[in-house]
Each structure stands twice: as C-alpha cells, then as structure tokens.
Design a binder for these strands. Structure first.
Length: 482
RNA sequence: GCGCUAUUAGCUCAGUUGGCAGAGCACCUGACUCUUAAUCAGGGUGUCCGGGGUUCGAGCCCCCGAUAACGCACCA
C-alpha cells in the first residue's frame, strides 16, 4: 500500500531503515509473561513479534504482539516515552515486526501486559493483513499464501506443530528399538515398490530419463540384503495421479524393515507405534474423532482376513469360489466392473474395496491379500493364492501396508514378469522389471518383515484434519496465470 | 477427466426486475491518559476473475477460458 511505502521512505531518510536490522535480543516469549507472571511482575522483559492490533486512546495506546508462543498486550504511554518516541510508536502499523523492552504489569482491567520503555521496528509490513475478526477464509488464498494463513489462523499453526511432534515421536519410538534412519535415492532409473504412475524427469549429463520415486521399498530391501538389519526411511514420495481430500501428488511415507521378522512382528510394531503416538498426544484417551466419526484405537486391534471381511460385508464367500469363471459371475451379479486383466485375486480385492473398506472404522488388521495384488509379498505357506500381508484400515481408510517380504528371487522374477505383461497390455501403473533388485535377492535376503505407513493420513487422523491439504504447509496447487 | 457451486475494495460479504458500485473491518484525517472486535466525527480507496456476445444500457443474461471448494471417476 502506498501509505506504507511513504512511511518506509520516511524511516529510511531519517536513518532508521528497518530492513538494515540483522538481530534483536529478546529474553522472553509472549506466553511466558502470562505463564510466569508471579516471578516476572515488575521486571523488565524484552519480547519480539508481529503487531496484530492497535487500540489508541490519545496519549495512551494498547497493542497486541504475537510471537510463536502466543500473544502479549503492549501498553505505551506518552508521559513515559516522551513526545517524539510516542509519535514514532503511533506510526507503527498492524503487521509490523517489533521488538519491545518494558516492564511486566497488570492493567486496571486485569490483563497482563508490558509497559513499554523502549521499542524498535525490526521489519516493516508493506501489505495490510486480512480482517481481524473474520480472518482469511478463502481456501485458495489460504493454501497459496500459507504464510498469511499462519499469521491469521492460530489453529493452523497448532496442526503443524502437532505434525512435527508426531514425526519426532515416530523417530523416538523406532530409534529406541534399535532402528536406523537411512536415505535412499529420490531420483530412480526404475520406479518400483508400488503400483502408481511416476513423474518423469530428465538428467542432462547422462542424457537419460529418470523417475521420481513412488516408494522407498526396493532400495530399503537392498539395504537389508547388505546387512543393515533394522532400517527405516521417512520421506517424500511422488505419484502422478489425481488429487482429492486424501491424495496429494507428493506425500510422506515411512517404510520400516526388520530382518529375521515377519508380518506378525510388523503388526505388533504398528500397534505399538500408533499407541505410543496416541499416548504422547492424548494421554490415556484412545478415542479419535475424524469427520464426525469416532474410532477407538485401543489395542489389541481387530484382525480378520480379506476373505472373511468380504464375506461379512458383501455376503460372498470366496472360500467357496475357486475358479475365475465363478468369480466373474458373482462379480457381475454384484455389478462390479471386471476387466479382462483381472484374475481371481483381483476380483476378491474389488469386492473388498467396494463392500468392506468403508465399514472398517475402528482400526482393523486385514490379512491374507491375494497374490495378484501383492507382487512383493511372501506367499502363505498353506495357500499359494494368498500372501503374508496385512493392511490396517481405520475410518474406512488405509493406514498402512505390510508383509513378510518376498525374498525368493525366482518367485520375485515371475511376479515382475506378470507386472511387465500387464504394463505391456496398457496398465500404466503396473511395475517394471528391476534386474538389479533381483540380483540383490540372488545374493540372499534374510527373512524380513516390512511396513509402510502414510504419514499425512496418520497426521490427519491424529489432528482431526479432514483434508490432506490441511496437514501440508504447501499443498500442490495449479498455477494461477491467465 | 466429468458434474456442481463460487470468484465484487486489502479482508469478510451484500448487490432487488438488466438502470449512478455498496456495508463492516482495515486504511487516511481529527478527538480521546487503562483499551482489548476500544469509542466518537469525517473520508470510498474498485481490471465486479479474464475474453467475447446480446442490449440504448451488463456485476447481473448468453458463449469461451482461468482458478478453487465439493461430489464422481482415477488412485491395488
């Protein structure tokens, strides 16, 4: 705004350019003054933050100063500051970054405040902030200009502080149990470990196309082959797919691998980890609320196989259906769209997604996924059509995916071959052949349990956020140019 | 990708039947020595999302486009 430009020009010409300031020593946070008022009353404190409101009374002014910890009221009096300083104080704008030195006291109305003895403009705000009462509501602006959203809406800040705490506690939990955090490449020559369309980019010096990773799985298993027995990686992955309330093109997952363990150990790990987080955040309360639904995360969580779940929620018993022809017939009776590429296991999965998934509100382990939809999981010993795999569903959404990792290089090669065939038939999400990964398995991978958890979704459930955009500082947005 | 709704001042929003562009907050000027959505008096600051069209006249009607929220599809 023009008025603020003029004010800045005035400051610059009087040798007080706020943008030349490099440092300010503050000794107290805004919230500390109210929290520790008993010991701070009458003492001189130094605070710094953003001026969020002004209430001028003539020869006395009140302002609210916000910092990360909270807010504190500032009281300035002409008699104490002197004519010139008080005039300078009155020129401050809402939005300005200000450092204040003063005495902690309580006003006549009882509000704990700072009686200003000196102050310094630390940075000039050149743009007016949104309205104080209604704040910034426009979703487009809130996501594109998250900095303004964070200034205006304190609950937004709280969600991200909680996100940080959750992530820290995940690391604490795993580090305490002897896991090691590792980093693997985000730029891949073969995108593997999941069924998803990748982002493609180009490396100039090598003159090859590369892919942004769609999972961390295959590299982490290579580390297990290499003897790194307990590893995890928490990081961003990228999938070139649709966006909605629970999907963003880049999102954060954690994958954890433990040698000499199986999917049962991963179940214990998952229950333990999530219980740890809930305990750290909510104390004893295990009931989470999300989109007006309550879910009790008290352990032990319910366990059922995918076939059982399909039977319970659709009435169809795949324990009795042994051929593809029968399965296709039943699927058509239930108006499910069967594609030519679908095998028996794909149809079981279709039934599960259509009928069971949305009903799984309390956290539930779903085990025994068909082999056709589990190209990296070990077969069940007693039934080669299914795998030692589980997913946890809560609030009708998938929370994690885990299995006893397939370590048989011959079996793995066959599964890749099927994926490649699907890809050649036009399925862009099918996997690619990864010869180096097969070579790694040929050197011998110990029996291993692995699990992948969607961090953003977990944070959504723990913070009550209804959209993934509300747990990402900068959700992916289409550029606005016209 | 499809459908639906929205887009007006810095922000939150009104805008009648197609007839001079509006309010509150913010901002500017002035008053005010304990306010807290301070108060009081005065001041309207605009590419009505963009581009066409219909009309004497369009914020409003029609067409094309942009972005977003929501729903659907996709995402094992």
């Amino acid at each position: 705004m023009k008025v603020r430009r003029d004010k800045l020009a005035e400051l610059v010409s009087s040798g007080e350019n706020p943008f030349e300031i490099t440092k300010y020593n503050r000794d107290t946070k805004a919230s500390e003054i109210t929290d520790k008022f008993d010991e701070l009353e009458g003492k001189t404190v130094s605070v710094a933050g953003r001026l969020m409101s002004k209430r001028g009374m003539g020869k006395v002014s009140f302002c609210d100063l916000h910092d990360l910890s909270g807010k504190i009221q500032i009281y300035a009096k002409k008699d104490d500051l002197g004519e010139e300083e008080y005039a300078r104080f009155k020129k401050l704008d809402v939005g300005d970054i200000v450092g204040v030195v003063g005495i902690a006291f309580r006003t006549q109305r009882g509000e704990i405040s700072i009686h200003v003895t000196s102050f310094k403009l630390l940075s000039k705000s050149m743009r007016p902030l949104p309205e104080k009462w209604h704040g910034l509501k426009d979703m487009d602006a809130r996501y594109r200009q998250r900095y303004v959203d964070l200034i205006m809406n304190s609950e937004v800040k709280d969600v991200f502080i909680l996100r940080s705490k959750i992530i820290k506690e995940i690391r604490n939990y795993l580090d305490d149990r002897g896991f090691m955090e590792v980093d693997t490449p985000m730029l891949n020559t073969i995108p593997g470990g999941a069924a998803a369309r990748p982002f493609i980019t180009h490396h100039n010096a090598l003159d090859i196309d590369m892919y942004m990773r769609i999972a961390t799985e295959l590299h982490l298993k290579r580390l297990i082959v290499g003897g790194m027995e307990k590893v995890y990686e928490m990081g961003r992955i990228f999938r070139n797919e649709g966006m909605d309330q629970t999907h963003n093109p880049e999102f954060t997952t954690i994958e954890i691998y433990e040698a000499f363990a199986d999917f049962h150990d991963m179940m214990d790990l998952m229950e333990g980890l999530v219980s740890h987080l809930i305990n750290k955040i909510f104390g004893g309360n295990t009931i989470l609320k999300w989109q007006d639904t309550e879910s009790d995360f008290k352990t032990p969580w319910k366990r059922m196989s995918m076939v059982e779940a399909v039977k319970e929620y659709s009435g169809v018993d795949f324990g009795e259906i042994k051929t593809l022809e029968e399965a296709i017939k039943v699927a058509k009776e239930h108006k499910l769209e069967v594609e030519p590429k679908h095998a028996l296991g794909d149809i079981i999965n279709l039934f599960f997604e259509e009928y069971a998934e949305k009903n799984l509100v309390n956290p539930t382990f779903i085990t025994g996924h068909p082999i056709e939809v589990s190209p990296l999981a070990k077969k069940c010993k007693d039934d080669s059509g299914f795998t030692e795999r589980f997913e946890v569903f809560a609030f009708g959404k998938e929370l994690c995916n885990a299995f006893s990792e397939l370590n048989d290089p011959f079996d793995q090669r066959e599964r890749f071959v099927r994926q490649v065939a699907l890809r050649e038939a036009g399925d862009e999400e099918a996997g690619m052949m990864d010869e180096d990964f097969l070579t790694a398995l040929e050197y011998g991978m110990p029996p291993t349990g692995g699990i992948g958890i969607g961090i953003d979704r977990l944070v959504m459930f723990l913070t009550g956020a209804t959209s993934i955009r509300d747990v990402l500082f900068f959700p992916t947005m289409k550029p606005k140019n016209d």
